[in-house]
Each structure stands twice: as C-alpha cells, then as structure tokens.
C-alpha cells in the first residue's frame, strides 16, 4: 500500500469514527422502534429547532393575545379570553376608524392596505425595468449593478435619517429647488407628500434586492429563444411580453411574495422618517403593534399580540392564495 493510499485509509477511518461510535446506539434504537420509525430519529434535531424557534413563539403569542395585565411572564398573566380581539373589533362602522374603540388600529390597517399594493407594484415595476436594463450589454454594467444594490446594505435607520436630512424643511432637496428658483415644500408635513416619500424611500432602499433576483431570472432565459424571435421579426416589446415575462413568471412570483411580506413588515424606515405622521397618515400595522406593545407605558403585550396574530393570519391567507396561483401557473 502506497503512502498516499495509507493516508487516505487513515482519513477514512477518522471520518467513520463518529458513525462507528453511535452504531451500537442506532442498532439498539432500530431494534426497539423498528426500521419504519427510524426516520423520525433523524428528524428530531431539526424538528426540535422548528418547534423551539417557530412553533413555540406562535403558541406563546396566542397565549399573550388571550391574557391580560402588563406582566411579562405567561404564568403571571390572567386568562381573559377574546377580550383583546373584542377591543380591536369594537367598532360602530368598520369603514370609519373614528367610531372604533381602537381607532389607530383601523387607521394603521387602512394605511397598510393602501401602502402595500402601491409600494409592491412600484417596487416590482422599477426593479424589473432596472433588471432588464442591467441585463443588456451596457458600459459600466458591473458598476451600475453595485450602485443599485448599495442601499440594500444600509441600515434602515441610516436610510431614514439620510432621507430625513434630504426632505426636511431646510434639507438638501429644498436647497436644490431653491437654488434653481423652483418653489420649495415642507415635504414631510403634508399627508399626501409624506405618503409619497414613504413609498419612494422604501422602494429606494429595497429595490436592489429584487433587481438582483430578477436579473438572475433574466440571465437564465436562453439567448437562442430571443434570436429565433428576432429572425421571425418580433419587435422588442413583443419579445418582452411573449418571451421574457412568461419565462420570468416563476421568479416574479417569488419576488412578489417576498415583496408583499417585506412591505407588510415595514416599520423601521417610516418610524424614523415620519414616526407614522403627519397625524397617523403613514402609521402602518407594525408600528401600531410596536406602539401598543413596547412604546406604551404600561405595555399592553396582549393587545399587541392580538394585532400581530391578525396580521400574521392575513399574511398566511395571502401567501396561500399566491401559492395556489403559482401552482396553477406551473401546471399551465
């Protein structure tokens, strides 16, 4: 046996050591449980992690939502049934938040229902256009890819503070407008402009991530399909709508689901940029949950847990619909 094969043999022995060490244990287990139950033994480590870090928090959240007081530990909290949900749904007219006991919950819900579709549509449209541009043979393509991805690497608080300095009364944007003789505006003081900038800033901050995913999807489309279309005199628009979009559909669906979930979770940028204002014009659901559960004194963990479960439920339903559509698309 050569020196090389001796080393390889020794390495194999070392690698097999753990397997040999547990072999008696596994054999014993197999004798007791039977071979059909053995897969569960191997799944236990992962299942433990899922139960501890995913399922248990959900159950704890459910318990918080049906318990009262400002106590932290579950065993110190009295059971109050559906009182927190009842408080949230205590409304004379669901379309008019002013008639609700927890009016800010309904205002935040209404804002979220407008913010999410607008932000996701704008984000995906711009990300797709950017990805299409970056997929072409343009000069400095790598540089531009880096530029568009750069905001994704910034902390949300840094993003919000930067835009606050740009948009405030004496900020950079008004300085620029003033220098060019254009009228200035206090951008974050009016509900409509504040909402516009909320969408703009969050799109700016996250667009790069989706652009990269879409770019990868575009690059996986075979070139010869486009060449065949060109030979058939297809216009660029027709190629885009008949080749690019259909072949990109699975990637677009993933991007769509990720973008919706991230959009519903929006909190940090807007909390620093507008604090949910003016009034409650940009207060979204997560900020409401934060305000009730953490900023309030005494902290109302129960109400915050109830609101977050409702939000989670809405996201679950939405994701199920998306997955169904996605499956339908694949079957076609």
């Amino acid at each position: 046996m050569s020196a090389k094969s001796q080393v390889a043999h020794a390495a194999g022995q070392v690698a097999m050591f753990p397997a040999r060490a547990v072999e008696p244990l596994m054999s014993g287990l197999q004798r007791v449980l039977g071979i059909k139950r053995m897969p569960w033994v191997f799944l236990i480590p992962n299942l433990t992690a899922v139960v501890l870090f995913a399922l248990l928090p959900v159950f704890i959240n459910v318990f918080y939502s049906v318990s009262g007081s400002d106590r932290l530990f579950p065993w110190d909290r009295p059971f109050i049934g559906g009182a927190n949900y009842q408080t949230l749904f205590d409304c004379t007219n669901y379309l008019d938040p002013a008639t609700c006991s927890r009016d800010l919950f309904w205002r935040a819900l209404g804002n979220t229902m407008v913010f999410v579709p607008v932000q996701v549509t704008v984000m995906i449209t711009i990300a797709l256009l950017t990805a299409v541009c970056l997929n072409r043979e343009i000069r400095g393509r790598g540089f531009f890819r880096g530029i568009f991805f750069f905001p994704v690497m910034l902390s949300p608080v840094v993003v919000a503070l930067t835009w606050q300095w740009i948009l405030q009364r004496n900020g950079a944007l008004n300085g620029l407008l003033s220098a060019t003789g254009l009228p200035t505006l206090n951008w974050l003081v009016f509900p409509n402009t504040a909402f516009f900038w909320s969408v703009f800033v969050t799109v700016w901050a996250h667009m790069g991530f989706y652009t990269i995913i879409l770019l990868a999807g575009l690059q996986s489309i075979p070139r010869d399909v486009y060449e065949a279309a060109r030979m058939d005199s297809a216009t660029p628009w027709r190629s885009f709508t008949r080749i690019t979009l259909p072949l990109l559909k699975p990637v677009l669906l993933v991007v769509f689901i990720l973008a919706v979930i991230r959009s519903v979770q929006t909190f940090d940028e807007l909390y620093v940029l507008t604090g949910g204002g003016p009034g409650s014009a940009t207060m979204l659901m997560v900020q409401y949950i934060y305000e009730v559960g953490f900023a309030a004194q005494p902290r109302n963990f129960g109400l915050a847990a109830a609101a977050s479960l409702l939000l989670g439920l809405a996201l679950l339903v939405f994701t199920a619909i998306q997955m169904r559509i996605s499956r339908g698309g694949n079957n076609d």
């Binding site: 206090n186 003081v189 604090g275 003016p278 009034g279």
Partner: peptide, 14 residues
Amino acid sequence: PMDLWGAVGGSTHR
C-alpha cells in the same frame, strides 16, 4: 411650525 407636532405621528419624541 408643523414640523414637530404636525409632521410626526404616534408617541414619537422629536
């Protein structure tokens, strides 16, 4: 000015 009490929402200190 509206910048402080008008522009900001919730309980945020500014």
